[in-house]
Computed example of a mutant assay.
Amino acid sequence: MTAVSRLSAAEVLAQADELAGLLADTVDGGASVGFLAPLDRASAVAWWEGRAAEVAAGHLAVWVAHSADRMLGTVGLAFPDKPNSRHRAELVKLMVHPDGRGRGLGRTLLTTAELAAAATGVTLLHLDTETDSPAETLYLSAGWTRLGAIPDYATTPSGVLRPTTVFYKRVGAATAAAT
């Protein structure tokens, strides 16, 4: 059984090593989440430790999915700090460990973030993901709208330039108003 829970800043710090392992394994498994492979553990730990301040400040929310014995996935919501953008958030770092893929865990994490965003008054979510990646299929099947692609936006973990696709989704009150 897999449980999903939201992490506090202290929990991000306490679980930084396990989060780093998930990040490194995801990158080494080919996921384009902003890092090059191979991702060394120390750099991954440092990256996660840096996120704790963002969580503490309320600019980032992080959820993790755990099985009985290991962390299998994570997702985050990044909240803007400008007054005119408090109605939106960016979905970031949706990662599922290669051993956890194909079980609906990505969908569970995505739904968790969408519901949490709506519960905080967010009405618009956006994200970008590598074009033609399995993540694109997930977002489309979950009702996200494809806005377009940006060529040569980021590199794959192996260093190849690839386009990214930008998506958005209305949630909460915006979803109800649109129907």
Rank of each mutant, 00 (worst) to 15 (best):
S5P: 03
A10M: 10
A10W: 06
E11R: 12
E11K: 06
E11P: 05
V12R: 11
L13V: 07
A14C: 05
Q15A: 14
D17A: 10
E18R: 11
L23N: 05
L23F: 08
D25V: 01
D28H: 02
G29W: 00
A31F: 08
G34Q: 08
P38D: 02
L39H: 07
V45I: 14
W47D: 15
W48D: 08
G50P: 03
R51C: 15
E54D: 15
E54R: 15
V55S: 06
A57M: 08
G58A: 13
V64N: 05
A65S: 07
H66E: 14
H66L: 11
D69R: 06
D69I: 00
M71W: 01
T74W: 05
T74V: 14
L77C: 11
F79I: 02
F79K: 02
D81C: 04
K82F: 02
N84P: 04
S85V: 07
R86G: 13
R88A: 15
V96T: 01
D99L: 01
D99V: 00
R103E: 01
G106H: 00
L109F: 08
A113R: 07
A113N: 08
A113G: 10
A113W: 09
A116H: 15
A116D: 15
G121N: 06
A149W: 02
I150G: 02
P151K: 10
T156I: 09
S158Q: 12
S158P: 00
L161I: 05
T165S: 06
K169A: 09
R170V: 11
G172W: 14
A174S: 15
T175A: 13
A177H: 12
